[in-house]
């Protein structure tokens, strides 16, 4: 819901519950991602992660920010779990699109680069 509200405000939300950042088409109500006509199989947290990146393209996002956003609580040890989800998400995007849009900044975080999508 919060995601939707944010998207509405920022204007990314095309028709109702859809978000399009080529080649990704995200249906927020069905929680599905379409890439080039194929469905990208993502589990809950991976989906949330991708949506987060699509909402904040070309932005450096720290692991802490991701954890806070996806898990919703503060933890001193939790950052490593972000890395796990990140590597899964990357693998799945790579398999489906052969793209590597998510760049790692060592000791800092990640950045979703839109120029990689072109």
């Amino acid at each position: 819901m919060r995601v939707k509200a944010l998207l509405k405000r920022s204007g990314h939300l095309g028709n109702d519950n859809q978000m399009v950042v080529a080649p990704f088409t995200v249906d927020l109500s069905k929680r599905t991602v379409n890439v080039k006509g194929k469905i990208l199989e993502l589990n809950g947290k991976e989906f949330d992660l991708l949506v987060y990146f699509l909402q904040n393209p070309d932005t450096i996002i720290t692991k802490e920010q991701i954890f806070d956003r996806l898990w919703g609580f503060e933890s001193e040890t939790a950052i490593s779990v972000v890395e796990v989800y990140m590597s899964n998400l990357r693998k799945k995007i790579k398999q489906a699109t052969d793209l590597k849009p998510i760049k790692t900044l060592r000791n800092v975080g990640y950045m979703f680069e839109t120029e990689e999508l072109a």
Partner: peptide, 21 residues
């Protein structure tokens, strides 16, 4: 650029987080 200096910025952010906690 920010990109070049992302590491010191992130270190700072981390410490700010510590302070926050």
């Amino acid at each position: 650029s920010v990109m070049e200096q992302a590491e010191p910025i992130s270190t700072t952010l981390e410490e700010v987080r510590h302070l926050q906690t």
